[in-house]
Amino acid sequence: MHLEKFDMKNSVIEIRDLKKSYTETKVHVHALQGVDLIIEKGEFTAIVGPSGSGKTTLLNIIGGLDRPTHGNVKLNGQDIGLLSDNQLIDFRRDHIGFVFQSYNLIPVLTAKENVEFVMLLQKQTQADRDARTLELMTAVGLADRMHNRPNELSGGQQQRVAVARALAPKPAFILADEPTANLDSKSTADLLDLMATLNQEEGITFVFSTHDQRVIDRARRVITLEDGKIRSDEYRA
């Protein structure tokens, strides 16, 4: 293991001996079987592996959407296993950005309102919200689509709005489970460009899962899962 190698102060995600079993089904599934992982601030990391290897399970647990059977998760130094359900919801709202595979956006809200939504939940002032939404919508290249509803945007545009929304509360990191799975190659490239730019210029931490070789090629660290365990963990130049 590479644990000693990292400067612990810079880590945003710290996972120790993470196990997750699904026991509600007849055949018990051991989706994660002891995962140790540290993600540092500013990483651009892909989680890959065959279908059923545990990528989604891992990302859900990191994101506080699911609780592990064993082990613990520290985000920004906070052990999220110690939080109550409502505390966990607030923690997600304030510290984690999510981009899901599809249908990320609230259909009845415009792109601007979707980006603004979490800030509204945080009770930020109107002025702060307006400034931040404009900044983010410009950053994702959709300043001219502020007032469109999700169904008036292409899949790629929707994912970019989702990235903007994820960034709105200035989270510690962004988790994205197969964000390009439903996109064509042009939109995939655009979204990856956007994420890479945000990562390099703003220092935003991204952790994403994918099956797509073109996406894997853009990552600077690739963690490969197999049968709920880390098979390899490579850094690229």
């Binding site: 997600r92 609230i106 979490v118």
Partner: peptide, 13 residues
Amino acid sequence: SYEFGILKAIGMR
């Protein structure tokens, strides 16, 4: 329920 899932995930109580 998918929509509610998203809302809960991104921090709506």
